[in-house]
């Protein structure tokens, strides 16, 4: 068999892996009981970011030798995921701060701040840069990790505030809409007008549709999560 055919399969395999991880993450977010903030952040990453990183990961492995694709893919994804995991620390602190300051208005406030970020030139630049590979991979895992970190940084600058806003709701509908918005933006010929995107973000922030199992958690201080869920569970199914 020709290696060209193998390579094509490797691209398809990459798509299966990343989109599979994305689908599983959405199932977990939908079906699993309310999670801690850390768990929620970890589940959100593949759910929202895997479809966005797919074209970049494909570009990275398309531009190295066949024998380098494995290490490059691993390094690239490791760097990218590491970046986002580390970003979870300030993200969670910001979410706690928003809940403490704004209570039930934490989510609309977070979306309003994200909308504000989206009309800045800095965000526009980060978005444009994050839609392409910052540079070509050299072919080894260490370099690919650095490239993944760089790409992760750009992605955080571009999408981070929206990720934080989505998590503030702990609700699937805004997360799904934000994911679709980011996907549409990354596939567009050029960035849509910033004001239009900002308006959409504000609208998403006002959507009163949190997940029924997680509604209380969304606006409760995080330490009340377990109790709220236990109360909710006993109220719904007392015999359980």
């Amino acid at each position: 068999m020709r290696q060209g055919a193998l390579r094509f399969n490797s691209v398809r395999a990459l798509a299966h892996i990343l989109l599979g991880a994305c689908a599983i993450a959405w199932c977990i977010l939908w079906l699993a009981p309310p999670m801690t903030d850390v768990g929620h952040w970890i589940a959100m990453l593949p759910a929202m970011m895997a479809p966005l990183i797919l074209p970049l990961a494909r570009k990275a492995i398309a531009r190295v030798y066949a024998r380098e694709r494995g290490p490059v893919l691993q390094g690239f994804l490791f760097g990218y995921v590491l970046c986002w995991l580390l970003a979870g620390v300030p993200a969670i602190l910001i979410i706690k701060l928003l809940h403490a300051l704004a209570g039930p208005f934490a989510a609309p406030l977070a979306f309003a701040l994200a909308a504000l970020w989206h009309v800045t030139p800095a965000r526009a630049r980060a978005a444009k840069m994050s839609h392409g590979l910052a540079r070509l991979p050299r072919g080894d895992a260490a370099d690919a990790t650095r490239l993944g970190l760089r790409q992760g940084m750009l992605c955080i600058q571009s999408c981070g505030p929206l990720m934080v806003a989505s998590m503030t709701t702990h609700s699937l509908a805004p997360m799904l809409l934000v994911t679709l918005l980011l996907l549409a933006e990354s596939n567009s010929h050029r960035l849509p007008p910033a004001q239009r995107i900002a308006t959409l973000i504000l609208v998403i922030g006002l959507l009163p549709a949190p997940h029924p199992h997680k509604m209380e958690h969304a606006y409760d201080p995080p330490h009340q999560t377990d109790r709220s869920f236990a109360q909710q569970k006993s109220a719904v199914s007392p015999g359980a």
Binding site: Q3, G4, A5, R7, F8, A62
Partner: peptide, 11 residues
């Protein structure tokens, strides 16, 4: 077949 099966291969 080549059009639909193979992507460019860096050599």
């Amino acid at each position: 077949e080549a059009v639909f099966v193979s992507d460019p291969e860096l050599v």
